[in-house]
Design a protein around this nucleic acid. Structure first.
Length: 836
RNA sequence: GCCUGGGUGGCGAAAUUGGUAGACGCGCCAGACUCAAACUCUGGUUCCCGCGAGGGAGUGUCGGUUCGAUCCCGACCCCAGGUACCA
C-alpha cells in the first residue's frame, strides 16, 4: 500500500476502507480460466433472495465461503467466487401489495443495498459475473431450455392440488396458510385442482439415487435425506375389479382399482380398500349420498402440505361400492379415507389392518375386520417374536397363515408366489416405485419467469417461438388485488400463434423459483453466453469444487439442481454428471430458537455491528461462534471479544515493530521461551492448515490464533534472534487469520515488511522440527480414575512409564497394596493401572 | 406423522470420534491503573465437600459393551431443519 495512511492505531473503518479500495483498484478477485482445471477452484455459496437486508445467516454463509475461497487462493488456486441474486419470489409481491411499490423496483433497491453490505464485509467476489435471475438475459435461457425439454417430451401438463382461498379467489403458498386459514382473508382454505406444468424428474429418479453413492464430498446426512426422499421401493401393482353396484353405473374406466403395495405377502389379509377423497369413485358415490358428499367436502378443507395431511385425524366413510379380491373373489368395501393422497400412485390403497398400523387403527375406529395372515417366524427375536392383534398390527416380516396355498411361506417366498399368481391372472405386476413425484413448476404468481407457452384455439398448446424469446415480464405494474396483474393486461396476454398465425393467449403462470436456482452456478461460469444458455467455460468450471449453503436446502434445491445438471448434460451443454463435488451444509443461525430468515427482523441485521466493530471483527466472531455444520443461537456478545482480540493483535505487532524489523532467524540459537513460541506458532500453522483444508472447522483456527497471540504476549525476548522468532510467529498469525479477517491482516502484512496483496501470498509450510517436545505429561489412572500426572521424556517406553507411575504417592495410596492385574499404556497420553 | 440432525459450565464452545472433559472466548468475581468511571492489564471461575493436600459427582434420561465412553450399542425425552407453493 503506497502512501499508506497511519495504521499505528486499530481503526477498522479506515483500515477496511483502504484495503477494500486496494482490492477494487487491482480487480483482485476477477478471474479467468487457468490452463489446467487443477489450478482452478470454484467456490460457490448459495446466492441470496434479495429481501432487503443481509441477516446473520447470510453473514455466516458468505464468510464461510469467503474463508474457503481465500484459503484456496493462498494454496495457489485461481479461485472463482461469484455472487448474484435469486430475485424472483413471493416476498416482492407481498411488498408490492403492502407498500404499493412494483416488485421489480423493490427488488432492485434491495439488491443495491445488499451488494453494499456484502462489499462492506470484504467478500472476495468476482462482481464482473453478477446477475439477477429477474434479468431477461438470464430467464430467457430458462424459457429456451424449457421449450427444449417440452420438445423432448420431458414436460407435461396435469392437474394438481393447490391451496385455494375462496374469499380472495387466489392460490396460496403453504406458508400463507395459517391453521388452515388464508393469512389475509382468514377464510378456511380448500384443496383444489389446477392444471400445472410438470417436469419429468421421475425419469431421472434412478440416476439421482444411484449417483448419490459417488458423491464422496457430500455429508452422509444429506445423501440419506435424498435417498429417503426419492424413496425407491420394490413392490407389486394389484388390480382390484370394482363390483357392479345396484344404484350406481360404474363407468368403464373406473371398473379397475389399481393399488401399489410393498407387502403382497399380506394380500390375503386385505379387508377393505381406501381411496382418496378426490378419487373418481368417491365423486361417483357421493352423487347419491349427501352425507358422503359433505364428508368429502370437509376432507378437502386441509392444507395441501404433507405435514398437515400426515398429522390430521384419520377419518373415513364407506362408499357403498365394493372391490373384488383378485385371488379370493371376496368382496371388500371401498372406503373414502382422508389420509389417502390422490397424488401418490393411483389414489387408492389396499388395507391390511392385521399388518399395517395405520390400517389397524382405522379398522378399530370403524369396526372393520382385522385378519391375521402373518405370524412370527420361528427364529424371530425381540418385538418381532410377539403378535397380539388386540394391541397393535404385526408389521414385521414373518410366515404366512390363513392364506390357503401360501401358508408357511416366508416374506420372500410369498412375495414371489403371490406376484406370480397375480401376473398369471393378469391382475398384477411387479414394479419399482419411487416416492419422488414429478416437479410441478407452475405458480399462479406474477413475480416470476413467464412460462413460454401459448394457448391457441386452433392448435392447442404451443410453445413460444425461440425467435420471440424472452417472453418479458412487464415490470410497470400495479397490484390492485391479490391476483396476478398479468391477467389484467390484455396487451400482454393476447398474441399470435406461431403455428397458425391466429390469435393466442399467453400462459399467465410463472415458474417455480427453484427453476432459476437450479442452473445459476453454470451461468456464473459463463455469465455473458448468448447462445445457448452456457458455453464451454461452464464445462471448464463445473462441477463446483465446494458448494456452501444452509441445511434447509438439503433436499429440494439440491435435488432440483442435480436434476437440471443432468438435463443440461443430456442436452450437450455440460459434460459432468453432478453439479457439486463437495458440499458444506451450514447449520442454522437461530434467533429466539427459529431460523434467521423467518424470525430475525432487525435483530438479525449486521449493519449496526459493522458500523461499530468493522467487518473483520464481525467475520471473526461469526467464525469463532460455532463449527460450520452446527446450528447456534446468535448473540452479539462475541463480537466485542473478537474486536478486543484484533486490537491486541494489532498492538502486539506495533510493540514488536517499534524496535524495527529483526534480522534473519537462527533456530539453533533461541532462548527456551522463543523455542516454545516457535512450537506454538508452527503447531498453530499445521493445525490451521488441517482445519481450513480437511476438517472445515474454523472456530478452532480462531482459538489457535488467540493462543498464538497470547504466547507472543507472554514471551520475553532475550535478543534480536528471539525477536526474529516473534516476527515469524506474527507472520504466521497474520497468514492463518487472513481468510477470516482479511483487512487488518493485509495492513499488518505490509507492516511486517511483506509486499503486495496477502490474498495472493503463498501458505507457508510448517517446520516439523519446531513441533518436537522433549518431555510430555502422562495421566496415571488407577482402575480408570485419574490419580496423578507425571512428566516423562517424550520417547518413554511402557516399562519406564509404568515404573514412573508406580512411584507416585497418590497412585500407591489408591492401589492400596492390591496386586497389579493389568497395565494399559497409551504413548503420549496415559497409563492405566488395573488393580484388585 | 415421517426423514435428517442436535442436546457438554451462567453463555458460545473444545476434546482430530474409545484415552486428562470444559482448550479458546463471552459473562461474572477479585486486584492493578484512575479523583472516579470507561478502556487496558493481572489473577480466579463446572458443581459439591475440604484451610489445604485432596476427594466425590458430572457431557439430555435410563440401561449395556469396555481396563477406560461426550464418542460405540439399545430404549426413551426434548429441541431444530425438511416435508414437494418460504427461499
Amino acid at each position: 500500500m503506497t502512501a499508506s495512511p497511519d495504521f499505528s492505531l486499530y481503526d477498522p473503518r479506515a483500515i477496511e476502507a483502504a484495503v477494500q479500495s486496494q482490492w477494487q483498484s487491482e480487480r483482485a478477485f476477477e478471474v479467468t480460466e487457468p490452463g489446467a482445471r487443477e489450478d482452478a477452484y470454484y467456490c460457490l455459496t448459495m446466492f441470496p433472495y434479495p429481501s432487503g437486508q443481509l441477516h446473520m445467516g447470510h453473514v455466516r454463509a458468505y464468510t464461510l465461503g469467503d474463508v474457503i475461497g481465500r484459503y484456496q487462493r493462498l494454496k495457489g488456486k485461481q479461485v472463482l467466487q461469484p455472487m448474484g441474486w435469486d430475485a424472483f419470489g413471493l416476498p416482492a409481491e407481498n411488498a408490492a401489495i403492502k407498500h404499493g411499490i412494483p416488485p421489480a423496483e423493490w427488488t432492485r433497491a434491495n439488491i443495491a443495498n445488499m451488494r453494499g453490505q456484502m462489499n462492506a464485509l470484504g467478500f472476495a467476489f468476482d462482481w464482473s459475473r453478477e446477475f439477477a435471475t429477474c434479468d431477461p438475459d438470464y430467464y430467457r435461457w430458462e424459457q429456451w431450455f424449457f421449450i427444449q425439454l417440452y420438445k423432448k417430451g420431458l414436460v407435461y401438463r396435469k392437474s394438481s392440488m393447490v391451496n385455494w382461498d375462496p374469499v380472495d379467489q387466489t392460490v396460496l403458498a403453504n406458508e400463507q396458510v395459517i391453521d388452515g386459514k388464508g393469512w389475509r382473508s382468514g377464510a378456511p382454505v380448500e384443496r383444489r385442482e389446477l392444471p400445472q406444468w410438470n417436469l419429468k424428474i421421475t425419469e431421472y429418479a434412478q440416476e439421482l439415487l444411484s449417483e448419490l453413492d459417488e458423491l464422496e464430498g457430500w455429508p452422509e446426512s444429506v445423501k440419506s435425506m435424498q435417498r429417503n426422499w426419492i424413496g425407491r421401493s420394490e413392490g407389486v401393482e394389484i388390480d382390484f375389479a370394482v363390483a357392479e353396484h345396484d344404484a350406481l353405473a360404474i363407468p368403464a374406466e373406473q371398473r379397475t382399482l389399481t393399488v401399489y403395495t410393498t407387502r403382497p405377502d399380506t394380500l390375503l389379509g386385505a379387508t377393505y380398500v381406501a381411496v382418496a377423497c378426490e378419487h373418481p369413485l368417491a365423486t361417483l358415490a357421493a352423487e347419491g349420498d349427501e352425507a358422503l358428499a359433505q364428508f368429502i367436502a370437509e376432507c378437502k378443507q386441509v392444507k395441501a402440505a404433507e405435514a398437515d395431511l400426515a398429522t390430521m385425524d384419520k377419518l373415513g366413510r364407506a362408499t357403498g361400492i365394493e372391490a373384488i379380491h383378485p385371488l379370493t373373489g371376496q368382496r371388500l368395501p371401498i372406503w373414502v379415507a382422508n389420509f389417502v393422497l390422490m397424488e401418490y400412485g393411483s389414489g387408492a390403497v389396499m388395507s391390511v389392518p392385521g399388518h399395517d398400523q395405520r390400517d389397524w387403527e382405522f379398522a378399530r375406529k370403524y369396526a372393520l375386520p382385522i385378519v391375521q395372515v402373518i405370524e412370527p417366524a420361528p427364529d424371530a427375536v425381540g418385538d418381532d417374536a410377539h403378535c397380539d392383534l388386540e394391541q397393535a398390527a404385526y408389521t414385521a416380516h414373518g410366515q404366512l397363515i390363513n392364506s390357503g396355498d401360501y401358508d408357511g411361506l416366508d416374506f420372500g417366498g410369498a412375495f414371489d408366489a403371490i406376484a406370480d399368481a397375480l401376473a398369471g391372472k393378469q391382475a398384477g405386476r411387479r414394479t419399482v416405485n419411487y416416492r419422488l413425484r414429478d416437479w410441478g413448476v407452475s405458480r399462479q404468481r406474477y413475480w416470476g419467469c413467464p412460462i413460454p407457452m401459448l394457448f391457441c384455439d386452433a392448435c392447442g398448446v404451443v410453445p413460444v417461438a425461440e425467435a420471440d424469446l424472452p417472453v418479458e415480464l412487464p415490470t410497470e405494474v400495479t397490484f390492485e388485488g391479490v391476483s396476478s396483474p398479468l391477467k389484467a393486461m390484455p396487451e400482454w396476454l393476447q398474441t399470435t400463434c406461431p403455428e397458425c398465425g391466429g390469435p393466442a393467449t399467453r400462459e399467465t403462470d410463472t415458474f417455480d423459483t427453484f427453476m432459476e436456482s437450479s442452473w445459476y452456478y453454470a451461468r456464473f461460469a459463463s455469465p455473458n453466453a448468448n447462445s445457448p444458455m452456457v458455453d464451454e467455460r461452464a464445462t471448464f468450471w463445473t462441477p463446483v469444487d465446494t458448494y456452501v449453503g444452509g441445511i434447509e436446502h438439503a433436499i429440494l434445491h439440491l435435488l432440483y439442481a442435480r436434476f437440471y445438471h443432468k438435463l443440461m448434460r443430456d442436452a450437450g451443454l455440460l459434460s459432468s454428471d453432478e453439479p457439486f463435488e463437495r458440499l458444506l451444509m451450514l447449520g442454522m443461525v437461530l434467533k429466539d430458537g427459529k431460523k434467521m430468515s423467518k424470525s430475525a427482523g432487525d435483530a438479525g441485521n449486521p449493519q449496526k455491528l459493522l458500523e461499530k466493530y468493522g467487518a473483520d471483527a464481525v467475520r471473526t466472531a461469526m467464525m469463532f461462534a460455532a463449527p460450520p455444520e452446527q446450528s447456534f443461537e446468535w448473540s452479539e456478545g462475541g463480537v466485542d471479544g473478537q474486536s478486543r482480540f484484533l486490537k491486541r493483535l494489532h498492538q502486539v505487532a506495533q510493540d514488536h515493530l517499534a524496535d524495527g524489523l529483526p534480522g534473519p532467524l537462527d533456530t539453533s540459537a533461541l532462548s527456551p521461551a522463543a523455542t516454545e513460541l516457535r512450537r506454538v506458532a508452527h503447531d498453530a500453522l499445521a493445525r490451521a492448515d488441517d482445519d481450513f483444508g480437511r476438517r472445515r472447522q474454523f472456530n478452532t483456527v480462531v482459538s489457535r490464533a488467540h493462543e498464538l497471540i497470547n504466547a507472543v504476549r507472554g514471551t520475553t525476548v532475550a535478543d534480536d534472534n528471539d525477536r526474529a522468532a516473534v516476527h515469524e510467529a506474527l507472520r504466521i498469525a497474520v497468514v492463518i487469520l487472513s481468510p477470516i479477517a482479511p483487512h487488518l491482516t493485509q495492513v499488518l502484512w505490509e507492516q511486517l515488511g511483506e509486499a503486495g496483496l496477502l490474498a495472493y501470498a503463498r501458505w507457508p509450510d510448517h517446520d516439523p522440527a519446531a513441533l518436537v517436545l522433549e518431555e510430555t505429561t502422562l495421566v496415571v489412572q488407577v482402575n480408570g480414575k485419574v490419580r496423578a500426572r507425571i512428566t516423562v521424556p517424550s520417547d518413554v517406553d511402557q516399562d519406564a512409564a509404568q515404573a514412573a507411575a508406580l512411584a507416585d504417592d497418590n497412585v500407591q495410596r489408591f492401589m492400596d497394596g492390591k496386586a497389579l492385574r493389568k497395565a494399559i499404556y497409551v504413548p503420549g497420553k496415559l497409563v492405566n493401572l488395573v488393580v484388585g
